[in-house]
Design a protein around this nucleic acid. Sequence first.
DNA 1: GATTTATTTCTATACTTCTAGAAATATCGA
DNA 2: TCGATATTTCTAGAAGTATAGAAATAAATC
Lengths: 113, 113
Amino acid sequence: MESFRPSGLSIEQAASTFAALGSEQRLAVLRTLVRAGPEGLSIGQIGQRAGVTGSTLTHHMKILTQSGLVRQDKRGRSIICVADFDATRALSDYLLQQCCADADQPHKDHADD
Amino acid sequence: MESFRPSGLSIEQAASTFAALGSEQRLAVLRTLVRAGPEGLSIGQIGQRAGVTGSTLTHHMKILTQSGLVRQDKRGRSIICVADFDATRALSDYLLQQCCADADQPHKDHADD
DNA sequence: GATTTATTTCTATACTTCTAGAAATATCGA
DNA sequence: TCGATATTTCTAGAAGTATAGAAATAAATC
């Protein structure tokens, strides 16, 4: 019996993706991109809207793209960034999956999940 | 015009709550509690199931309760912890709110959100 | 080729978080 | 009261993250 893996996200991936959102600046960036929709925005536009620029923004964007929440696409001398809506939804769904699966059950060890 | 505040969560609160989940151990604890349902579990039971104990677990529980994702209730010499499902759902909903609100609009500065 | 624009890499400092041992506190039962 | 159980506080070193200046790269334009 193999353990159920919700949304295809391992706990390691999920935790590191949550960590990516655990910064006010990065959360502001992601939400700016979510608002912007599928057309995305360049790094410069993100900077204007979210109030983070330069090497600090580069640093945060790297963390967001590594987490899979944002995709980047080089166009000319700009980099267009788009929120990955599927990844965002998968993370969003992660928390409440398996809700109450263990309620009223004889206790059993789950440490090996 | 006041800015729309989704789920009543400020960006500061949301970021710090995501940060609370940005640790594999704390995420394991929250999911253990989500699985356990509204009856909750004692600190000791969480330790057994999630594989974190002692002062390290206390430390993580403090972060989870401060974020509002978990509530604690002293019963005898045990502390019963319960996932706050409303808070969890509010966080889960936070990411995709205002999706595409700015798509195809003339650009406007959002840095003051 | 030189210049401008867009973004990154390198680097360093400051700050925060993680982990866990040891001692402390609180509650229950004998 | 004594002992056992459940959990916390204190403490501190190790590890990780944030921020940002300066120099570097890359592409478009002149």
